[in-house]
Every structure is written in structure tokens, then in C-alpha cells.
Nucleic acid binder design. Structure first.
Lengths: 164, 164
DNA sequence: CCGGGGTGGTTGAAAATTCAATAATTGAAT
DNA sequence: ATTCAATTATTGAATTTTCAACCACCCCGG
């Protein structure tokens, strides 16, 4: 109950900026992708993950972990992509419980068609806005944030972990 | 049309880091807030916006613009908050079309109760991870990103924005 | 071989979001 | 006054996400 240390102006700029930048970049990329290719940014990420994997296939559980989504959410999403013919499910040979999401040729083709435009959006919305001299700092900060917020919840003194 | 310039390793670290950091920070704050106060991060943002406004009230349209949400989405969200008694609607005296979302005393109390814990989370998940020497750069970059992705018009010229 | 405990994934219903259509009001032009 | 276009917000249906229950299979100990 002690008086919390409030955010000073610089900290507030970072916090608000982070929140708004995330939203805006996401909204812009999503809208652009949807209009140009009929794909959600999430759909696109699914296709990317599969296309970069051995045999263009991935276990459902690995894919959901990579996407930072629940298995249920992924399952429904794959349903929709499968209905559109961009992905199909295959039984996992090594583990009878498992399923593989496999990128179809159609799916790969849609990815290839969408990629250049999307790449341009990523540059326009984010990358080209960061000066070369700033890039190393930004990359390091982002990676530190990712690491600190990775699942192993028992994070280093999060200041207020003592509140079951 | 031309061969797209792919992302180099540093650019890729930034892009991936940005995407993952956004998701992780959001998920963590949302989970923490939900557990500690029964509020979504979005609910919380609604209460904050109202609490900081004249008379703790705001036009629906202003609120939705501030939150970067559609009016429909806000309307449904206010339905839920109103059902819980944290917010109520009032007719706008100056414009018969308008409605004001007004923060109730209960709503303000919940905000006050949730704020210290949330503030700690924001520090733990984001602010404290950025070295003092890095902060100015980070704030500037984020604000540049926000500005470049603000609604005005679809800066279709993906190549690059205005070169000053 | 059999029985548990744990993992991988799906399912369906509930909750939230999006999308298109609608109603009410304003401001401006006729 | 009256009409017309634009603005404000809500509504309900379709889509998507979340949540909890569930099934099938793996692994391991008896």
C-alpha cells in the first residue's frame, strides 16, 4: 500500500508510445494485408511459420507456441484456413496424438503473392522510421522486453510478485 | 513491382521483437489486471480516459477515438461496464445526437484500487527494462512510429514517407 | 497386460469483436 | 419551412476468441 512511484514524463511517453505504436502498426498491417491479399496478419503469420519449416509442416502445438496463441484458437484458425485450402492437417507419424499443419501449394502461392506488399508495409510502418544509429538500441531493448516477459512466469523480482 | 528489399538481420530482430514484445506485454498486463482487479486492459484504459477528463466524462466518439476502437466496439464495451456499474451513459446537452460516458464513483474506486498494481506491472514488464541512457531514443522512435501510422491517409507510398 | 497420469488436440457453448444496417440529430442549402 | 448530406451512436447478426470439458494416445509402473 505504499505510495507507488508514478511514471515520470519520459517514462509516460514510452508507455503510451508503446501501447499506441503496437496498436497502430498492427491495425495498419492487418488492414493492408486484408485488402491486398484477403489475409489476416495472423493468417499470414501461420503461413510464414509453415513455409519456413522443414517440409512446410509443423506440429499444432509448436505452431501455437510460436504464434503465442492457445491451442484452441489455433485449431479454429486452422479450420478456416483448411476450408480455404491454404493448409491441411496430416496425422503425425511419430506420435499418434499429434497433428501436423501442412502448407498446401495454394497456401504457399498466396504467401508468395502477399509477401512483397507486406514487406513494404513493414518497412513503411516500422523499419524505415528508425534511423540506422538507433537500430541496435531498439533491437536490444525489444529483445530484453521479450525475454523478461517470456512464460516462465516466476520472473525476477517483478516488484510485486508478492501478491498471490 | 521491383524486387523487394528483404529485411537484413538487424531489421528482422526489430520486426520480430516488436511483434513479440507487443503481444507479450499486452498478455501479461491483461492477465495480471484481470486477476487482480477483474478488469481487462481495455476496461482499464476506458476508466483511465474518463478519470482524466473534465467532469470524468467523455463523448462516446472521443472515447472511441482515444482508444483507437470502432464506435460499435466501444458501445458494446460500455454496455458491459454499465451493467457492472462502473460507467453510466448521459445525454449530451450540447448535441442531441451525442452521449457521454460518465465514470461512476464505483468505477473511480475500482480504478484507484487497481492502479498501483497495474503501475507495478507496467514497470516490471516494460519501463524498468530500459536503461536510462536508452530511454530518450526509445521514446523518440515510438513517437515517430505513432505519428507515421496515424489515420490521415493511407500513406500508400510504402517506399518511404516524406523525406525531410 | 492393465491402469493411471500426463500430453496433444478438438469441440461446443459463451463472450467479445466486426460488419452492415438503422435511427436520430445537426448543419447547410434551398 | 424543407430537404439533403453528414455525424453520432446503437442494434443485431456473423465471425472470431475464450473457456472448460472431452477424447485419444503416449509413457510408465505394477
Amino acid at each position: 500500500m505504499t505510495e507507488p512511484r508514478w511514471l515520470d514524463p519520459l517514462e509516460m511517453r514510452i508507455w503510451r508510445g508503446f501501447l499506441e505504436a503496437s496498436l497502430r502498426v498492427d491495425q495498419r498491417l492487418d488492414a493492408s494485408l486484408k485488402e491486398a491479399a484477403g489475409l489476416t496478419l495472423e493468417d499470414y503469420e501461420v503461413l510464414v511459420a509453415l513455409s519456413e519449416s522443414e517440409g512446410r509442416r509443423l506440429r499444432m502445438s509448436e505452431l501455437s507456441a510460436w504464434l503465442l496463441h492457445s491451442q484452441s484458437r489455433l485449431s479454429h484458425r486452422i479450420d478456416r484456413l483448411e476450408r480455404r485450402g491454404l493448409v491441411r492437417r496430416e496425422k503425425c507419424p511419430e506420435d499418434g496424438r499429434g497433428l501436423l499443419a501442412v502448407l498446401t501449394d495454394d497456401g504457399f502461392a498466396e504467401l508468395v503473392a502477399a509477401a512483397p506488399g507486406h514487406l513494404g508495409d513493414v518497412r513503411g510502418a516500422l523499419i524505415d522510421l528508425i534511423e540506422p544509429a538507433e537500430r541496435e538500441v531498439v533491437a536490444n531493448v525489444l529483445e530484453r522486453i521479450v525475454a523478461a516477459n517470456r512464460d516462465p512466469d516466476t520472473q525476477t523480482g517483478i516488484g510485486q510478485a508478492a501478491r498471490s
